[in-house]
């Protein structure tokens, strides 16, 4: 198939960017979206133009490194990561716009590459259970009811790709944060730090410049791991409880 790509090019963090149009031809529907960009990059390289910078690593939908806004949708038209999106989801003659995640908390580094360090700093603020190596009790000493373990797992499936922020009209990181709050909050091991965790993470989130949540639900629709909106509810509930307890 033949396609017209409109791609955001930006030379560096402070440079002014612009959309540039690139036609691509002979794209196979078995290619992944990123392989299609690889093909384009090989052509650019051959022509002496600098290839388009974009992030990707595992290319099997789990590391969370890739992420493009494809014709206005985070990770494109399917519920999956950009690397797992295949060209059979598009038709011959399509015009596709490709942009980086847009959020001030995710500044653009170059072309389609953004800096998601703000997510790491949110985790640093409290997204962990303090258990020094070697201090752990026997694993079977604390049983975890299966429904709780399953819900924790569901929330822990988050890959930290940032699609929720990219899709949110407010550029809010609440789904990412809610997933971590829910994951650790469902487990008995996570209880001692539960109040402090939510308060500190939310405070860091706001400090990073993410927007607030107005319960629109775009995040959950864009999430490649289908994390439900529940987790934001859980976050709000935990936050309300923590504030009432004076945390």
């Amino acid at each position: 198939m033949n396609l017209t790509l409109k791609i955001w090019r930006q030379a560096g963090p402070k440079a002014k960017g612009e959309m540039v149009t690139y036609p691509v031809t002979d794209i196979s529907e078995d290619m992944s979206f990123l392989e299609m960009l690889d093909v384009l990059n090989e052509q650019l390289n051959a022509r002496g133009e600098e290839p388009i910078a974009f992030d990707s690593d595992c290319r099997e939908g789990i590391c969370g490194m890739c992420g493009l806004m494809i014709s206005g949708k985070a990770h494109g038209p399917e519920v999956t990561t950009t690397c797992q999106l295949h060209m059979r989801s598009f038709s011959d003659g399509d015009e596709i716009t490709i942009e980086p995640w847009r959020a001030d908390a995710f500044p653009v580094i170059k072309d389609l590459v953004v800096d998601r360090g703000s997510f790491d700093r949110i985790i640093q603020a409290g997204g962990f259970i303090s258990a020094n190596t070697g201090s752990a009790p026997e694993a079977h000493s604390v049983p975890v009811p299966k429904p709780k373990a399953d819900r924790a797992f569901m929330a822990a499936a988050c890959i930290g790709c940032g699609a929720c922020v990219a899709a949110c009209p407010n550029a809010s990181g609440m789904l990412f944060m809610g997933a971590k709050i829910t994951h650790l909050g469902e487990l008995p091991q996570g209880q001692p730090e539960r109040d402090a965790r939510v308060v500190n993470m939310v405070s860091q989130h706001d400090h990073e410049g993410f927007g607030g949540c107005t319960n629109i639900g775009e995040c959950s629709s864009a999430c490649p791991k289908e994390i439900p909106l529940d987790v934001i509810n859980q976050l709000n509930k935990d936050l309300r409880g923590a504030l009432m307890r004076g945390e």
Binding site: F128, I129, T133, A149, A152, F153, H183, L187
Partner: peptide, 8 residues
């Protein structure tokens, strides 16, 4: 160790 860290 992993269970203590909250690995589900």
């Amino acid at each position: 160790q992993c269970v203590a860290q909250g690995v589900p």
